[in-house]
Every structure is written in C-alpha cells, then in structure tokens.
C-alpha cells in the first residue's frame, strides 16, 4: 500500500471531496435559518413565560445543550419515524439527509433561542418603558425598539454559532451521509489512502471557518455602531 502520505493524492482528491462541500453548506444554511426561526419562537415562549410551554422549552434547551450531537442525530433518525407513525405518517423511506437537516435544525433552535433570549433580556427595561410612554404598543415596542438593539448584542454570538455549526456538521457522515468526510472515507476504503482525504477535509474546514470568522468580524464592524 505504499507511502503513508502522498502529497500528490491530496491534489487528486481535492476536487472530488470539494464537490461534496455543497452538502455541508446545505446542512449549515438550513439548520441556521430554520434554527433561528424556531429559536426565536422558543425565546418568546421563555421571555413571556408562556404557561405549560415554558417548562417544556426549558427542558428541551437543557437536553440539547447537555447531549452530544451524534446522539441527537440518531434519536431523530430512529425516533421521528416512530413518532410520526403514531399519527399515521410513514417517513421510513425518507432520505437520510432529511433526518440530518432536521436534527441540526432542532439542535440550533435551542442554541439560537438562548442567544436571542439573552440578547433581548439585555436591552434595559427603561427602553421598553420609554417606548410605552410615547404610546407604542407591545408589538411595536418589540419590533421597533427592543429587537434592533438586541440584534447588535446577539450578532457576535450568532457568528460563533454559525462557525460551530459548520464544524459539528462533520459528524453527519456517521449517519451515512456522503458529505466531504463521507467521501474521504469512501475513497479511503477503495484506495487504502485515508490520511490524504482527511487532510483535504481538514484544509477545507480550516479555510471555510476562517472565511466565516473574517466575514462575521467584517460585518460586525460594518453593522454595529461603536
């Protein structure tokens, strides 16, 4: 099986593995968008202490934060079909990718909820009082005064979350998704050259996370006054 590490193979595998990068991007983008929307709803439940829902949501967040992503992914994979079968929907034939997308979205929802909640809570009460004093309604206050301020507080944490999500998507291959790491393993099984593939994947992750970090730092400077 030859050398332990062949630099030429890194260049050979690069395009093949890079062609799987869109899968990673898909998981990151759907889970961030879906997670933010769902997380916002969860944050509202917590902020307004909606009865019944609030304690459920608190346990949900604690569970997501206290368990490994791998396990969450398999719980969704095995548990979701069983749950939906109870209401007569059969999703046993769904592509595995959907389960991955759902689990990363559910995962992000919990983290986003905490980011959004603490950002909204950080806006001083005086702001709300002032808004009420000039006759804004509760919703107007939230939309026009509180959320714009909370956005600036949440933004850096949001950026960190996106980078973390990118890194954690590397686990999707354990469910058999053919993403970059899945591709590297497939090549490895065929050629016995695993390391070169791993190195390619590592390089792509380094580049992508650096780009994201730089991008968010740039946006932060542009968006946030002072």
């Amino acid at each position: 099986m030859g050398k332990l590490f062949d630099v030429a193979l890194v260049f050979e595998y690069m395009p093949v593995i890079l062609s799987r990068f869109p899968v990673t991007l898909l998981i990151v983008s759907t889970s961030i968008i879906g997670g933010t929307l769902l997380g916002f709803l969860i944050a509202l439940v917590r902020l307004y202490r909606v009865p019944v829902l609030n304690p459920a949501v608190v346990s949900y967040i604690s569970f997501i934060r206290g368990t490994p992503v791998i396990i969450q992914m398999f719980l969704v994979y095995y548990g979701f079909p069983l749950l939906l079968l109870q209401v007569g929907i059969n999703i046993n034939r769904w592509d595995k990718l959907y389960f991955v997308l759902i689990s990363y979205m559910l995962n992000n929802a919990a983290f986003m909820a905490e980011i959004i909640r603490s950002a909204i809570a950080s806006v001083p009460a005086g702001q709300t009082e002032a808004a009420h004093s000039v006759g804004l309604s509760g919703f107007q206050t939230l939309r026009r005064i509180v959320l714009p301020q909370a956005f600036f507080t949440a933004f850096p944490a949001f950026g960190t979350r996106v980078v973390n999500t990118l890194e954690s998507t590397s686990l999707a291959f354990t469910l058999g998704i053919l993403d970059m790491l899945g591709q590297a393993q497939a090549i490895g099984v065929r050629t016995y050259h695993l390391l070169e593939g791993y190195v390619v994947v590592a390089l792509v992750f380094i580049a992508a996370s650096m780009l994201l970090e730089k991008g968010f730092a740039w946006m932060e400077r542009r968006l946030i006054p002072n």
């Binding site: 890194e167 954690s168 590397s170 695993l194 390391l195 791993y198 992750f205």
Partner: peptide, 23 residues
C-alpha cells in the same frame, strides 16, 4: 492555533488514529 481551531474534533480523532496506528 488559528489553523488548528478550524479543524473539527472528529478529524483530530480520525487523523491521529491513522497517524499513530499506521506507522
């Protein structure tokens, strides 16, 4: 650190496993 920060944990495990066992 700037470089290594970008690598997901699972790759640390897989790469080090390979780099220790194969030699």
């Amino acid at each position: 650190i700037t470089f290594l920060k970008g690598i997901p944990l699972v790759l640390y495990v897989l790469i080090l496993n390979f780099m220790i066992l194969k030699p």
